[in-house]
C-alpha cells in the first residue's frame, strides 16, 4: 500500500527535484554574493562533471537492483595507470584509449563476479573498492605524475565561447543523452526496470538479465575510466588517491535523484537534477562561508529527506484518501 503511494509520488520525483533545484538557484542568486555569475557557473559545473559522468551508468545499474561502489577506486586506478603509461612515453591519445579500456576491464571483473558467480554486487564492489584502490597504490605508489602537456590540462577546464560553460560539461551531455535515451526509449532500457523489480520474471520473459547487467558494469567501469582521465587532466595530477571517497557522493546523488535503492524505479533526468542540486547547494553554502561540517550535515540531511519525504507524503496521502472514503 505504501509502495503504491510511494510510486505515485515518485513518478513525479524528478519534477519535484527540478523545481527544488530552480528554487535553490534563484534563492542563492538573490541572497549569495557571487553565485549568479558566469565564472561561478563554470566552477560549479567543473565540480560536478566527474560525479555526473559516473552517475550515468550507475543510475542504470541501481535501476536493475545492483550497485557499483568501486567507481571511485576504478577512477583512481585508471588515473594511476594513466600516469605510469605517460611516464613510459606512450602518446597521450593512446594512453586515453588504453585507460578507458582498462576501466572497462575493471568493470568486467565486477560483472563476472556479479553475473557469473551470482554474488551480491554490494559485497563484490566493496571488495573491489578496496582492491582497486590498493592496486592504484601498487601501480603508482607515493608518486604523482604531473607533467601532462599544458594544452591538455587547460582543455579540461576550458570553456565554450562566452566563458562560463566548460567544455567538459558540454561533452558530458553527450553520454548523458545517450544513457537517457537508452534507459527511457529502448527495449534494453525498458527491460532494466523489469529486471530491477523482479529479475526472475524478467528472465521468464526471455530478457537476458545476466548479459544486460554484465554490459552495465562494463559501461560503469569504462565511464569511470573516462572520469579518471578527466580528473587527472583537470587537476594535472595522476595520483593513486585521486577521488578517494567519491563513491559516496555519487551514490548520494543517484539516490537523491529518485532512483530506488531496491531497483526498478528512477529516471536519468532526476539523477542529473540530483547531481546539480547537490552541487548547487554546496557551492552556494561555500560562497556564503558556511563551514565544511555544516555542508556535511546538509548533504546527509538532503539524502535522508529524499527518501523520507516521498514516503511521508505517500503515507499522508493514503491516510487522507482512506479518511475520505471511510
Amino acid at each position: 500500500m505504501t509502495r503504491d503511494a510511494l510510486r505515485a509520488v515518485s513518478t513525479r520525483w524528478d519534477t519535484v527535484l527540478l523545481v527544488v533545484l530552480a528554487a535553490v538557484v534563484v534563492t542563492a542568486g538573490l541572497l549569495v554574493d557571487g553565485f549568479a555569475s558566469g565564472r561561478n557557473l563554470q566552477f560549479l559545473l567543473l565540480d560536478v562533471v566527474a560525479i555526473a559522468l559516473i552517475a550515468l551508468p550507475l543510475t542504470l545499474i541501481v535501476i536493475t537492483g545492483e550497485i557499483d561502489l568501486s567507481v571511485a577506486s576504478t577512477l583512481g586506478l585508471c588515473s594511476a595507470v594513466m600516469g605510469q603509461l605517460w611516464v613510459a612515453g606512450l602518446s597521450l591519445e593512446l594512453v586515453v584509449v588504453l585507460v578507458v579500456g582498462l576501466g572497462a576491464v575493471l568493470g568486467a571483473v565486477n560483472a563476472v563476479f556479479v553475473t557469473r558467480f551470482a554474488l551480491p554486487s554490494l559485497a563484490v564492489t566493496i571488495g573491489t573498492l578496496a582492491a582497486y584502490r590498493g592496486l592504484a597504490f601498487v601501480v603508482l605508489g607515493d608518486q604523482a605524475v604531473a607533467d601532462f602537456p599544458f594544452s591538455w590540462t587547460t582543455a579540461a577546464s576550458s570553456t565554450v565561447a562566452d566563458g562560463s560553460v566548460p567544455w567538459a560539461a558540454v561533452v558530458t551531455l553527450v553520454p548523458a543523452v545517450v544513457f537517457g535515451v537508452v534507459l527511457h526509449a529502448t527495449p534494453f532500457g525498458r527491460s532494466l526496470y523489469a529486471m530491477g523489480n523482479n529479475a526472475e520474471a524478467a528472465a521468464f520473459s526471455g530478457i537476458r538479465v545476466a548479459r544486460a547487467k554484465f554490459w552495465l558494469f562494463v559501461a560503469s567501469g569504462a565511464v569511470s575510466g573516462l572520469a579518471g582521465v578527466y580528473w587527472t587532466l583537470r587537476f594535472a595530477s595522476a595520483r593513486a588517491d585521486n577521488a578517494a571517497g567519491l563513491e559516496l557522493a555519487v551514490v548520494a546523488a543517484v539516490l537523491l535523484g529518485g532512483v530506488s535503492i531496491f531497483g526498478g524505479r528512477g529516471t536519468l533526468l532526476g539523477v542529473l537534477a540530483g547531481v546539480l542540486l547537490l552541487g548547487a547547494v554546496r557551492n552556494a553554502l561555500q560562497l556564503a562561508d558556511v563551514a565544511a561540517d555544516t555542508l556535511d550535515v546538509v548533504t546527509g540531511g538532503l539524502l535522508i529527506a529524499s527518501v523520507v519525504v516521498p514516503n511521508a507524503v505517500g503515507l499522508a496521502r493514503t491516510r487522507w484518501r482512506r479518511r475520505r472514503t471511510a
Partner: peptide, 16 residues
C-alpha cells in the same frame, strides 16, 4: 582507435 592513436599524437617529449 589504437592504430589512429598510436600513429602520431602527444608524447611526453613533445609536451608544451
Amino acid at each position: 582507435l589504437l592504430v589512429t592513436a598510436a600513429c602520431g599524437g602527444t608524447t611526453r617529449g613533445s609536451g608544451d
